[in-house]
């Protein structure tokens, strides 16, 4: 057993919500990612036991989706959009500035384990392009300068939890629409829209 009891309880709670155990695989992988910042082999074994499928079947799904990380990420995962709407709104400059500030190239993590940088395909914020995600919390209407401010702020403040609304207020510009869930509590690791934050407290 590599998972804490609270995490296993949470997992069982999630499994309960599905008619078939294996259907809970997706959310359970977020639980795993919340634990280590990526999907570790130990977590794969744990999940396969919890939902009764083989390890390799879990790995197959975990390695298919790019938002499930196969390598450890830094404390803040910076995903800058490079798709068309952002591109025509000058995202290449945002990308360049963020890369310069963090001194990282694509899919790299810095030595301190603070930032992981990736440029990604459309993150669904075309109306507010260019956009960036910090631990999958979206900030829209960025400028290259604001993007650097955001990184600086993260580096100095090192907030335990990043909340989209807060980031948007501080660094964002035009917002496409109110896409975030109402009681957004933010994210403490690269786990999108899945409120493991409360559980983190318990653990």
């Amino acid at each position: 057993m590599t998972w804490e009891n609270a995490r296993i309880d949470k997992a069982k709670e999630i499994i309960e919500m599905y008619p078939q155990k294996r259907s809970a695989l997706g959310p359970l992988l977020y639980l795993a990612q919340d634990k280590d910042g990526y999907i570790s082999d130990d977590s794969i074994v744990e999940i396969s036991r919890l939902i009764g499928i083989t390890e390799v079947q879990v790995q197959s799904v975990a390695s298919f989706y790019s938002m499930y990380k196969q390598e450890p990420t830094g404390k803040y995962l910076l995903s800058v959009c490079k798709s068309i709407s952002c591109e025509i709104s000058n995202s290449s400059n945002v990308i360049q500035k963020v890369k310069e500030f963090t001194n990282l190239s694509n899919n790299e993590t810095d030595d301190e384990g603070l930032f992981t940088y990736e440029s990604v395909e459309c993150i669904g914020a075309c109306g507010g392009a260019p956009a960036i995600q910090v631990n999958y919390e979206t900030v829209e209407g960025l400028t290259p300068e604001k993007a650097v401010d955001l990184c600086k702020w993260l580096k100095e403040e090192q907030p335990k939890v990043v909340v989209a609304d807060e980031l948007q207020l501080k660094f964002g510009g035009t917002k496409s629409f109110d896409w975030a869930i109402e009681d957004n509590t933010g994210s403490s690791s690269p786990v999108p829209g899945f409120q493991t934050y409360e559980m983190q407290e318990e653990i």
Partner: peptide, 22 residues
Amino acid sequence: GDPLIEFIQRGNKTQVNTFPDE
């Protein structure tokens, strides 16, 4: 009924493989 091999990764990287040590 013993699915111990599966597709890992996707796209150009897709490969059939087993889980490490399994």
